[in-house]
Amino acid sequence: MTAQASADPVSDIVIDVEGLTKSFGGPPVVKNLTMQVHKGLIYGFLGPNGSGKTTTLRMLCGLLTPDSGHGTCLGYDIRTQTTDIKRHVGYMTQRFSLYADLSIRENLEFVARIYNLDQPRKAAQDAIVRLGLERRADQLAGDLSGGWKQRLALGACILPQPELLLLDEPTAGVDPKARRDFWDEIHRLAHEGLTVLVSTHYMDEAERCHEITYIAYGEILAHGKVAEVVAEAHLSTYIVTGPQLAELAEELEKRDGVDMVAPFGVELHVSGRDGKKLEAATADLRAKGPQVWTRGEPTLEDVFIDLMSRVPDNSV
């Protein structure tokens, strides 16, 4: 039932959509979105709140019907073959959406039974062992801490052995250790051949993705490997250290040629899209001191904040 309809064998494209648009009565939340995701990759989906990440993920797994546009997910049509998509895609929702009044074991057994796994009890038990949840297996899911909830949710997602994982801000509100463990697990899964599309706010997580897409106000603003995205932004950046950075930042923001000023701890990142203009605009301050100016590489965050500032916020 699964084999004959599966993806085109010569291609390794898992998600292939074109021109997806979706609105909920108001202005479109997702505008004319086109993207391709290759098999076995971890694909990061970045963007500010309300940029359309969740809506896109929901359209990909059949929970929302696009207003226009078309495409396939695992070779199945995202409009007409949603049942097949659901059988092979694991979707982890942003908000914890397993049953809080069921235990971990009961939740996993429920999922195993819905997907009609051969031995649901055994499948659930195996998942419990893999997740390291043996001691908590009979605890109610609602009583777990944020990190364990997220771990359980991931476990439930991969239980039916999907080919594609859609993770919607899986690590929001989770402590750094749990986040790191989570990402190690995702890399392990990708290594086993699973494709992962993950939305996130965290730059360190974006840097752990093979490819990233930056989306704001429903449109893709940048796409590619992390280094490519940074390079394509053509940002020139100075890193400034020293005293009175706050006053300096205030002064710099008024100047033409300085597109972005962002404090990073004891450093100040000063960036401009035009390197020459940035040099000219800051020449006197660099000569005067007392701060120390060095030429630096822009970070991914610099790039994204700059991308954001270029697009007028027409969603408001």
Binding site: L63, K86, Y91, S97, L98, I114
Partner: peptide
């Protein structure tokens, strides 16, 4: 209201 519908709908049921 509890948000569990989103998970349920994403399953093949």
């Amino acid at each position: 209201e509890r948000g569990t519908m989103e998970s349920l709908l994403s399953m093949p049921i």
